[in-house]
């Protein structure tokens, strides 16, 4: 097998992402394919399980959720210093919001892209995770337990990684406990980072691959709805969700496509928690940098941006 054009791809901050071409002979004929390798980093914005990401992407593919085909998972770090997995490379697509939302080639595709974005989310939430063998992700004790479980998870990250006092985040955790949403309508597979910037699409507005499943888990579908709505993903700076559509259109479209009923209060709760979670992720990056586990300038940068999330959290809490 010959490997060529190996190069590192920007982004993918929880794991290193590498692209390469491979050429080999199979049944007498030459095969040439592009692959993406995701390798565990020395330090990251997130501490996640590559095995989960691999298994979930493999499982949802058969349910009509567009994801790159997963090929190999190597949990032993001896071959490439650290564990990794290899998946299909989808060519001819863009993922960065600066292209997807701001490149004129994509302007006419925005309506279709918005609809695809919604339809795929509905498919993820309809996925039968028990039949798909994903109960091992950890089933919340009850529909009511989804929210409190996520609060505890992210509060532990803030406890672990804060370098300074966090009065706003601490107040937010208390607000969240006082304003728990109704129990999840159903426990579903939650992507947990579903947003513009985490899918590969072409200029016809077709989403060819949903990426970044590092945080996926079982939980409340409203968590994904709210995460998609968060201001940091409104890349055009206005109020449009993901730079794609108005909030009311997003909710209506999701429900019409067979998604769950959306309650504004529940979305507000999950949006506060989403911003807190994102702040926690940035604190992890800053901690990695300050502890000397990485020299990635992005990790230094992210810690200086928590303030805007605090502003958003206070807006959402109404304080």
């Amino acid at each position: 097998m010959a490997i060529s054009a190996l190069h590192r791809i920007p982004g993918g901050f929880s794991r290193e992402t590498w692209s390469f071409d491979a050429r080999w002979r199979e049944y007498g004929r030459e095969v040439h394919r592009g692959f993406v390798l995701r390798r565990d980093p020395d330090a990251s914005l997130l501490v996640t399980d590559r095995d989960v990401e691999f298994r979930v992407m493999d499982a949802v593919a058969v349910h009509g959720v567009p994801v790159p085909k997963m090929y190999w998972l190597e949990n032993d770090g001896s071959a490439l210093d650290r564990p990794f997995f290899v998946m299909e490379r989808i060519d001819g697509c863009e993922t960065h919001p600066s292209k997807v939302l701001m490149d004129p080639r994509f302007f006419s595709a925005r309506d279709r892209l918005a609809q695809e974005f919604v339809d795929i989310l509905v498919r993820i939430h309809a996925f039968d995770w028990r039949a798909g063998g994903l109960a091992s992700l950890g089933v919340p004790a009850s529909e009511a337990g989804c929210a409190i479980g996520e609060i505890q998870k992210w509060e532990a990250v803030v406890d672990r990684d804060s370098l300074e006092p966090q009065p706003v985040l601490r107040a937010a955790f208390r607000w969240l406990r006082r304003n728990l949403p109704p129990p999840a309508q159903r426990i579903v597979l939650v992507h947990a980072d579903y947003r513009t910037g985490n899918f590969l699409c072409n200029s016809e507005g077709e989403i060819k691959g949903v990426l970044d499943w590092e945080m996926t888990h079982l939980g409340d579908p409203m968590e994904d709805i709210a995460w998609s709505c968060m201001r940091p993903w409104r890349w055009l700076g206005d109020e449009k969700i993901g730079g794609l559509m108005e909030r009311a259109d997003f909710f209506r479209s999701y429900q019409q496509a067979g998604g769950f009923a959306i309650a504004a209060d529940a979305v507000r709760f999950w949006e506060v928690l989403g911003n807190v979670k994102f702040a926690a992720i940035l604190l992890t990056g800053a901690r990695s940098f300050c502890d000397g586990r990485t020299r990635n300038p992005l990790m230094a940068l992210v810690g200086r941006n928590v303030a805007r999330l605090e502003l958003e959290i206070m807006d959402l809490m109404g304080v």
């Binding site: 201001r231 941006n305 805007r308």
Partner: peptide, 10 residues
């Protein structure tokens, strides 16, 4: 913040 030129602009 880097968001001041994008998501948080308005």
């Amino acid at each position: 913040s880097f968001w001041d030129v994008s998501s948080f602009r308005e």
